[in-house]
């Protein structure tokens, strides 16, 4: 517990999972909470301390998700995808999920196009971040937000 705002975030998160798993889920492990600092740390752990350049990475998410269990996401990086200029890795990070790292994708020049779509879990409204590592070692960063709404009925 670092700040009062973190308390609020936790209460809200417990809530969403309550909706997902029923009343019995009320006893959630409090340590299971990431925050913005955890996402930064996860990025450094995977990609090192190099500066994050803003741009070249786009994150596509719906503005509103009616359930955080499965939210469609597309991450793309601008790159020629030629033998000497390509995207090596792309990773997705959540500042609010219990684990900040969501997935790490390894590509190569043979991918032809640096674009990946999948579906992710979102433990509440947040700005999802993506980092791409190019073949020249530079890191690029993009992000997008989704509002995760609360369902009508708590027991689902």
């Amino acid at each position: 517990m670092k700040t009062p705002s973190r308390h609020t975030a936790l209460a809200r998160r417990s809530f969403l999972q309550l909706g997902a798993a029923g009343i019995a889920a009320a006893a959630l492990p409090l340590q299971a909470a990431a925050d913005a600092a955890d996402a930064d740390a996860a990025i450094r752990e995977i990609f090192g301390d190099k500066p994050l350049n803003e741009g070249r990475v786009s994150v596509k998410l719906p503005p509103i998700a009616e359930n955080g269990n499965s939210v469609a996401i597309t991450v793309a990086a601008e790159s020629l995808m030629s033998p000497d200029d390509y995207v090596r890795r792309i990773a997705i990070f959540s500042p609010r999920n219990p684990i900040a790292e969501v997935a790490l994708f390894k590509l190569g020049p043979r991918a032809g196009k640096a674009e990946i779509s999948t579906r992710i879990r979102m433990a509440g409204t947040q700005r999802i971040r993506a980092v791409a590592e190019m073949s020249d070692g530079t890191l690029w960063h993009g992000s997008a937000s989704t509002v995760v709404t609360l369902a009508a009925c708590l027991i689902g």
């Binding site: 939210v71 790292e101 969501v102 790490l104 994708f105 390894k106 043979r110 674009e115 999948t118």
Partner: peptide, 29 residues
Amino acid sequence: TYDGETVFEADLQPGIAANPIFTFYTRAT
């Protein structure tokens, strides 16, 4: 894997939704 090489690889965490789906690309060789 395709044509003798790994062309796409993903390390997944619990933040990936149930019944995982991936859409991605490769160059036909």
